[in-house]
């Protein structure tokens, strides 16, 4: 995947411009930055939902929007209505065959070889993300972390080469963030799938990352985390003094951010409901 001097304008406003980045197959890449920096816009530009106003891009060797089935996409946190009576396994299955004509009939599963393979494939990804034990519960009755695993399974089930995950760790508790980060990096390493993950907080995934794309003030920087998340680079990007502190467990704390961290999740809290 490659962007050259790309820019996106939405409603007569430039979201970001001059973005150049190259992601090699099999890399684990994080897109980080403050709210409104255009992180989700970058994902949507890759998907071809937002057209570039300047520059060029290629995704899996094709123009954005052409790669279709070869991309797995997990949109920004959506929660399922608690009263939705559809099982998790059905939601995952729709990722595999939801765009096909016809109507799901239970009988067809038993007699057609292709349907049996589909069912086995669903079971395989559920096992991969560790969701097998609750996949047959109605999805509205699973917890936030469980839903997120099921949705990652859905994005993976059609065997994509590129996985785009928009804030998969948002509104999860710390143990769940760590567990899901491990699941995602495992998928990246073992299956050779390129993963692009949008995150507010880089720390849960920091140790797995090959590359960071830091978006702020309409511009982007990309490179290995040790080069990008430094006091000098970020100060330059923001145009104000920024300090990056190292914690004893290898985490990073960005201080002097123009936006206080407390504001970070405000935009999404209205739409989420975390269940204990």
């Amino acid at each position: 995947m490659c962007f050259r001097d790309a820019a996106v304008r939405l409603r007569a406003q430039t979201i970001w411009s001059g973005v150049s980045l190259e992601v090699a197959p099999g890399e684990f890449v994080a897109v980080v930055g403050p709210n409104g920096a255009g992180k989700s816009t970058l994902i949507k530009a890759i998907l071809g939902v937002h057209a570039l106003s300047h520059g060029e891009a290629s995704v899996l060797g094709l123009p954005p929007g052409q790669a279709g089935r070869r991309i797995g996409y997990l949109p920004q946190r959506r929660s399922f209505d608690a009263s939705l009576r559809v099982r998790g396994v059905d939601i995952v299955r729709l990722g595999l065959d939801g765009n096909r004509w016809g109507t799901p009939l239970p009988v067809a599963d038993r007699f057609r070889g292709s349907r049996r393979r589909d069912r086995e494939r669903v079971a395989e990804v559920l096992e991969l993300v560790g969701a097998t034990s609750y996949a047959t519960r109605p999805i509205g009755q699973t917890s936030g972390g469980e839903q997120q695993r099921l949705l990652i399974a859905q994005a993976l089930v059609h065997d994509p080469e590129l996985l785009l995950l928009d804030e998969p760790l948002d509104s999860l508790d710390l143990p769940n963030q760590a567990a899901i980060a491990a699941v995602i990096s495992g998928i990246c390493r073992d299956r050779g799938i390129t993963v692009l993950i949008v995150a507010h907080d880089v720390n849960p995934i920091l140790s797995y990352l090959d590359r960071v794309v830091y978006l702020a003030r309409g511009r982007a920087l990309s490179g290995p985390p040790s080069e990008v998340i430094t006091s000098e680079t970020l100060s330059q990007l923001y145009g104000t003094p920024i300090e990056v502190l190292h914690t004893s467990d290898g985490g990073l704390v960005v201080v002097g951010h123009p936006e206080a961290p407390a504001h970070h999740s405000d935009r999404h809290t209205g739409r989420t409901h975390e269940r204990p």
């Binding site: 959506r78 399922f80 859905q154």
Partner: peptide
């Protein structure tokens, strides 16, 4: 119905 955004990106 159950997953509008993802369905749209998958060509539905």
């Amino acid at each position: 119905t159950v997953d509008t955004d993802v369905a749209a990106t998958r060509g539905v």
